[in-house]
Nucleic acid binder design. Structure first.
Lengths: 199, 199
DNA sequence: AATATATGTCAACATGGCTGACCTAAAAAT
DNA sequence: ATTTTTAGGTCAGCCATGTTGACATATATT
């Protein structure tokens, strides 16, 4: 997706996210005000590599989201729409509550884009059978076509990047990404991602 | 930084970006409308791994940007401020034009946050010596302290993720990230990142 | 029958993108 | 020396997409 997760970080939307900067933090640094665990001591070299890794993430995310953003513009949509289209596409029949949990936005924000997508026929809603309060969400044919257009260039970009980085890069890449996710959420996200290949 | 690159992808402030979704694209897929190169044919298994990698990036970015976002809130700032603070911190004396090129936003947008940061004493400006039209940007002591507070938790997160993924993960991780950046910009970004460790 | 849940909706507001027009001072070109 | 270009700023307004709070409805659950 071309999203920069909500405001969290943005940045490049996404809005890619923001990173960190600067030299060898004197002890005073991060512990200054936050009730967090003391920052692990690191050598200047380690700090430097860390800062560089963070900046690469910023720039990578900035460009990663640029392809879909352009396409979305043709439709008059934004990143928020892409996120919804993506997750509905990957989890046909997903509920509004699940979507809210994934996107970490308010129902009012979701409502706005969802209304547009349903109104213009990209997403269809069906009343849940087990629980009739639920609105199960599906892509229409039109929605699937848009989803494919959005996904195409982004997958191409990621595929090339992984290929260029060598054969074993994919596992390492995903492992780091997984460990960037909050520990509390990691198992749930993993379940979501691996069971998501519905059809 | 907690940015989600501009809208591009958007999100957690690191705004996280949007990803892609869905099953084994029938040939028609991404080439449908875009004048791009034909999407490389991929097996369902390859597609699946690709989609999963993209989703991990979304969730990783979402959480990656969450730490600074909270701290920024204390100051009454947003991700946009973090991005500026970060790059000024890492490139003392950076010009407005360079910053615009990195952030890929308009000068009016940058102006808004820069004005606040300068007004509240987090950033100081000096007139360029070679070219007196330039305003060279530096963090004040106050700005450096904020920068350290913002960077701390984010570095901690990345350091732990890399450590958890194994020793050689860092190189692979950065290699993939570098190749996600637009090819045209890659060399410039690399130069920026590696010469950035100024002090 | 009472309560809790899933979802929707109205209204108002904040942030941070954007465009367009226009201004100044300094550098570079003629 | 005059003109043009460049670095930067500024005003005004718009748009996308977050937020909070209050309230409504239908269905499940107790």
């Amino acid at each position: 997706m071309s999203t920069a997760p909500p405001a969290p970080g943005s940045a490049p939307t996404g809005t890619p996210a923001d990173s960190a900067g600067k030299p060898a933090e004197s002890e005073a640094s991060a512990a200054a005000d936050a009730p967090q665990s003391e920052p692990t001591a690191r050598s200047p070299a380690e700090t430097r590599e860390l800062v560089e890794a963070i900046e690469w993430l910023f720039f990578a995310y900035r460009d990663f989201t640029s392809d879909p953003d352009e396409i979305l513009h043709e439709y008059g949509f934004g990143r928020a729409h892409h996120r919804v289209i993506h997750f509905v596409g990957r989890h046909p029949g997903i509920t509004v509550a699940d979507l809210l949990n994934i996107l970490r936005i308010t129902k009012q924000s979701l409502s706005r884009v969802l209304k547009e997508l349903v109104g213009q026929g990209y997403i269809v809603q069906k009343t849940g059978t087990k629980d009739r309060r639920q609105r199960l969400l599906y892509l229409s044919d039109k929605g699937m076509e848009m989803e494919r257009r959005l996904a195409g260039p982004q997958r191409e970009r990621v595929a090339k990047a992984i290929a260029a980085a060598g054969p074993e890069a994919q596992k390492a890449w995903c492992a780091v990404l997984a460990h960037l996710v909050n520990e509390d959420d990691r198992r749930a996200v993993e379940a979501l991602i691996s069971n998501g290949y519905v059809s």
